[in-house]
Design a binder for these strands. Structure first.
Length: 304
DNA sequence: CAATGTGTTGAA
DNA sequence: TCAACACATTGG
């Protein structure tokens, strides 16, 4: 092994240049170890340092799969210890069930394998055969963000929607320069795009959607008690990457023009759920429960 | 002090 | 996007 490296093997030689790696996303470190990195949106995301370049290459592979999807180019055929198709599917599901920041954090802490094992184990007894819809969902990488039950004031005359502070800061961080507000585009299940002004109201210390919200309430006919859900597509597409989705109460007075308002009398799958507790959803359907959110906290990154 | 990770550039 | 290179920053 190692017969390919013609010139420099030793990092101890301070005169020579650092040895290159044959693996994508792997860069040499001055001390002879190896760094892993991946680029997104013109900037580097550091994935940590590793003893061997193969280890670093695997870290890159995992990040690549999470950032760019199942068809991403990788160094190895499969990322970790996944051998069977089910294992591979489980890992894809695991990747999609965590934010990019969480995956990066695991890589930097070298805890990815541990977390994946835990994930598989806690789901071991009740392994699910995912259907085509689920796989498609994984493929397009739509990730669950959070949901909120609409309060009376959310649909009242205040013309604003309060995003729970914890969710707002987690999913829609505002820089100080943006405190005045930014415009966010959300796509609904019909492909319609809704544009809202999103800002922080210092008087009430709350994050709100303002301009555009009332129109949404009116046209979707949402009422207090209805649920609004937020998703994000983590595949590329800088613009159409946020999604909004709601379950309007059935209206007796008018034929619904919206498919998603169809009566759910014989739709057994829909049920409300708390996010941030490890409940995993695909298309709003609970697939499996886990306890992944029980312990660890992850450092905050700019990207998702 | 050693190791990590960023600033930066030039190539593709 | 990507790796090479220099080195500022981190952290033990």
């Amino acid at each position: 092994m190692d017969l390919m490296n013609c010139s420099n093997e030793n990092a101890s030689d301070s005169n020579s240049k650092l040895p290159s790696s044959r693996y994508k996303g792997v860069v040499p470190q001055p001390n002879g170890r190896w760094g892993a990195q991946i680029y997104e949106k013109h900037q580097r995301v550091w994935l940590g340092t590793f003893n061997g370049q193969e280890e670093a290459a695997k870290a890159y592979d995992i990040a690549s799969l999470r950032f760019r999807g199942v068809d991403a180019i990788t160094n190895f055929k499969q990322s970790s210890l996944s051998i069977t198709a089910d294992d591979h599917e489980d890992e894809a599901f695991f990747l999609q069930s965590h934010s990019k920041a969480e995956i990066v954090d695991m890589l930097r802490k070298h805890s990815y394998t541990k977390e994946l094992q835990l994930f598989k184990h806690t789901n071991g007894g009740k392994r699910i055969k995912y259907n085509d819809i689920d796989l498609m969902n994984i493929h397009i990488q739509k990730e669950w963000l959070f949901e909120k039950v609409l309060t009376p004031s959310d649909v009242g005359r205040l013309n604003r929607f309060v995003i729970p502070k914890q969710q707002a800061e987690k999913h829609f961080p505002l820089m100080d320069s943006e405190a005045k507000g930014v415009l966010l585009n959300f796509e609904d299940v019909l492909g319609n795009v809704w544009r809202f002004r999103y800002c922080f109201w210092s008087s009430s210390q709350s994050y709100v959607l303002t301009k555009g919200w009332t129109r949404f309430v009116k046209e979707k006919k949402v009422k207090a008690g209805d649920v609004v859900r937020f998703h994000r597509s983590s595949s590329m597409g800088d613009d159409k990457n946020l999604f909004i989705d709601c379950t309007p109460r059935n209206t007796d007075d008018e034929v619904s023009r919206f498919p998603e308002t169809t009566s759910s009398v014989d739709e057994p799958l829909m049920e409300p759920v708390q996010d941030q507790d490890g409940v995993i959803r695909l298309f709003g359907v609970n697939i499996v429960e886990s306890n992944i959110a029980d312990s660890r906290t992850y450092t905050c990154f700019q990207y998702m």
